[in-house]
Design a protein around this nucleic acid. Sequence first.
DNA 1: CCGCCGAAGTTTTACGTATAACGTCTCCCG
DNA 2: CGGGAGACGTTATACGTAAAACTTCGGCGG
Lengths: 338, 338
Amino acid sequence: MAHGSTRPTSRDVAQAAGVSQAAVSLVLGDKWRGRVSQATAERVREAARELGYRPNLAARNLRLGRTRTVLLVVPALTTEFFAGVYTGAARIAAQNGFGVVLYPSPEGIGPARDPFASAQAALDGIIASSMAADALTALRGDQLPLVMLDSDPEGSLGAATVNLDIADGVRQVAGHLLGLGHRRLLHLAADVASWTFEVRARELAARVGAVPGTSLLTVRAPISIEGARTAAETALSAKGPRPTAIICDDDKLAAGAYKAVRRLGLRIPDDISVTGLDDLALATAIDPELTTVRLDAELFGERGMQALLAVLDGRRPDGGDIPVELVVRGSTAPPSVP
Amino acid sequence: MAHGSTRPTSRDVAQAAGVSQAAVSLVLGDKWRGRVSQATAERVREAARELGYRPNLAARNLRLGRTRTVLLVVPALTTEFFAGVYTGAARIAAQNGFGVVLYPSPEGIGPARDPFASAQAALDGIIASSMAADALTALRGDQLPLVMLDSDPEGSLGAATVNLDIADGVRQVAGHLLGLGHRRLLHLAADVASWTFEVRARELAARVGAVPGTSLLTVRAPISIEGARTAAETALSAKGPRPTAIICDDDKLAAGAYKAVRRLGLRIPDDISVTGLDDLALATAIDPELTTVRLDAELFGERGMQALLAVLDGRRPDGGDIPVELVVRGSTAPPSVP
DNA sequence: CCGCCGAAGTTTTACGTATAACGTCTCCCG
DNA sequence: CGGGAGACGTTATACGTAAAACTTCGGCGG
């Protein structure tokens, strides 16, 4: 470190104010009622301001044995969804004097560095999306309080879970399409092993299976526009009667489906309906605008952080899934009757 | 903290291995050649593994006076661009034993908490996007090594800068459109006071102004699809000859322009050409695919981190703007000759 | 007038680590 | 055979903070 002048410490402030280091700590830590006079306290604060004093966090953390920092583990930040989650979590954290460090699970970042080395910070707790499964294995073994987002409530032993009511969203989508008269459905599924996607498949099968005379074909694709386009194009080109609607596991897949449909010379929603899930900016950028399920990412983050704070306090986090909302736009219509 | 069993310290490891704490530190810190025997070193490592020892980072940071952690300050994470920057920066950081903490400048996160309180971590340096101007004011006053991304090389006193060659990108876009024969251009500009956008405006004016018989109208819009649509629609509905091409400051604005064009019953690129800048996923999701300028976000992040490492080492970061590339897709064509 | 209490501080200690400074013991060379 | 040079450790210390334990002093009730 070429740092010439070292930063002022609480001892420097003490000297400047003519008091002991302990007094500085008391005043700045707001624990001085009945211990330090009003006048002295003001003098200390003035000295601190004067010197531009900032407490050394490493020292404080060492002393207190906690950091008031939590880690938010998310899959590679490829959409704005997790930006929303972060925003919500950070808001609640800030209100409680906590900081949030983001740990996007590495993808080509390097040889699987563990989150702790990477975040360097010592942590009080972790909020992790179930989609960042690879990072989770590295997390196991440490006994930090953990909150899982969108994870199997049964499977995540011990850890509290906070979930979006994806199942309800899928039911709404399926109900919407079935109500319009669609009977041949294509499920464009994310090629990711994660609970949140399993729920989609399960719920869809249940809801559609309950209606006689329906068919449901599932095709898997990586979550990218190009990957989804390829998968959808192949599925739509297959022999036999064509599906009249495509239900996509998320909006990005839906964007790929749009391209597939267009390539085949078909039109949305006239020839085929498409639905997404997320309600990203993408959903209103494409034409026609996408019928999708709106997820409140910020609320998701808020609830996640609240759950973690509860765990840290020894309280039980309050449960209840976060409601989602079907947003009907121009990409769905009754099937054309040939 | 309800933490029942406290984590093992280096002293615990020492006791288990039958050596002193200092020996543990030497071995685990890989400074033991000629100080500790091969056998003892192995014994220490085994004990550490056995106990699941992890060094207390707060203590280490306090001792060393540095954290090997840098802060990456970015504007609200609303696109995948900064996710790429992070990935690149984190890769280089990891190769050098550094960690990167993300600080998305708060937007509704709370009462302007300063980055240091929020990131809690003590920092060795900062990489900041010029777009996160609000957070920067909070950073001033601290003498941390600073690297600015996409910032005025002249204006950012002292701080090293790493820039994309946006000016060249704009020249390429303008050249492309002028080459196709366009003469009436609309510049859909971002309503953000930031150097990177000023460069676009300046360079565009220079390049277009050099060609006789051209007109260039500038309209500002917030960086959102809906905001851009409104602004573009208003501009296109104005009296007088209509522009034949819209040059957008980024891809999101371009998506808004698409919607405006479509609302007016016009077609891209037949009636009007549109260009973007960024090459986000969005660019290939919309129809027709967007002619835009590809920015290598990861390389940007890598170069930023390399520059910061250089500063930390007392070396001079090597300069040179990062090249960008025009990607011609379906949204541009020669103007229709009425 | 004694003893106690509260105000206003100070002294001291511990947090866990990295490393400088300090012992041994053995070997080898002159 | 004296002593210097490794090899192999250990002891001691500092980093900056928070807080428990201690000191001092004036006032006041009994």
